Simulated scan of single mutants.
Amino acid sequence: MNIDETKAILTLANALDPRVQVNKPTLDLWAKVLHGSPVAACHAAVSLFYERYAEPTNRPVVDAPMIRRIISHETERAAAVTQAIEPRKPVLTEPRIRQRVLDRFRDEYEAGRRQGNGERAYNTAMRATGDHRQAQAAQREAEAAA
């Protein structure tokens, strides 16, 4: 935003509220604070500020940081409204996704069961014979059978 655009916004604020001074220091301050803000958003923020305060007796004097705050608040509000309108994507509602999850669960369950059968066979063979090689052979047979 350049100085002429800032001066137009400051003049608009002065037209709505004569307490806003249009002078060089105020213009420089507003230009510095509102630098990078869109001109249309600044005009809308000044108008919105004066729409919010219906009674002129209780209304504070508008300043550049307040305008910047209104712009950021309205931008965040518009983004939140846009996000709220977009539907959420379903996670597990499609049958093939459910089937994939169930298949993975079944595979993991079977792998755990085979491993448990092998460990059980190993432990039983070790208790019965005391021979490590025979226990390992029994464990491999149990895992293969399952």
Score class of each variant (00 low, 15 high):
Glu143Thr: 06
Ser47Gly: 08
Val61His: 03
Ser37Asp: 00
Leu92Val: 08
Arg104Trp: 15
Arg120Ile: 04
Thr93Cys: 14
Ala144Met: 02
Ala146Met: 04
Val91Glu: 09
Met1Arg: 01
Gln136His: 08
Glu119His: 08
Tyr50Val: 04
Leu34Arg: 00
Asp107Tyr: 11
Ala8Pro: 04
Lys7Met: 07
Leu16Met: 07
Thr75Ala: 06
Val33Cys: 01
Arg133Val: 13
Ala144Arg: 03
Gln99Phe: 04
Ala80Cys: 13
Ala146Leu: 05
Val101Tyr: 01
Asp4Trp: 04
Ala79Glu: 15
Ala128Lys: 12
Val61Leu: 13
Val61Trp: 02
Glu55Phe: 09
Ala84Ser: 04
Leu29Asn: 15
Ala41Leu: 06
Thr93Asp: 09
Leu29Ile: 10
Glu51Arg: 05
Lys32Thr: 09
Glu5Asn: 02
Val81Leu: 06
Pro65Arg: 04
Asn23Asp: 12
Arg77Asp: 03
Ser47Asn: 14
Arg69Asp: 10
Leu102Arg: 13
Arg59Gln: 13
Arg77Asn: 11
Ile3Met: 12
Val22Met: 03
Lys7Gln: 07
Leu92Phe: 11
Glu108Val: 08
Leu10Val: 06
Lys7Trp: 14
Val81Gln: 09
Gln134Asp: 15
Ala40Ser: 06
Gly36Thr: 07
Leu10Lys: 00
Ala84Thr: 05
Thr6Pro: 02
Ile97Ser: 15
Glu141Arg: 10
Asn2Val: 02
Asn117Arg: 04
Ile71Lys: 00
Pro65Gly: 02
Ile67Thr: 07
His35Asp: 07
Arg77Glu: 10
Asn58Pro: 06
His43Pro: 01
Leu27Cys: 09
Leu16Val: 02
Asp63Phe: 08
Ala111Trp: 05
Ile97Pro: 02
Leu34Tyr: 00
Leu27Glu: 06
Arg106Ser: 10
Thr11Ala: 14
Arg69Leu: 12
Glu143Leu: 05
Leu92Ile: 07
Thr6Gln: 01
Tyr50Pro: 00
Pro25His: 08
Ala54Trp: 02
Gln99Asn: 12
Thr6Ile: 03
Pro56Gln: 10
Glu86Gly: 11
Thr124Tyr: 08
Glu119Thr: 05
Val81Phe: 08
Ala128Asn: 12
Thr57Met: 10
Arg77His: 12
Asn123Met: 15
Pro18Ser: 14
Arg77Pro: 01
Ile97Leu: 15
Ala128Trp: 12
Val39Thr: 12
Thr93Gln: 13
Met126Trp: 07
Ala79Asn: 08
Val61Asp: 12
Leu27Met: 09
Asn123Tyr: 14
Met126Ser: 10
Asp28Tyr: 13
Ala44Lys: 09
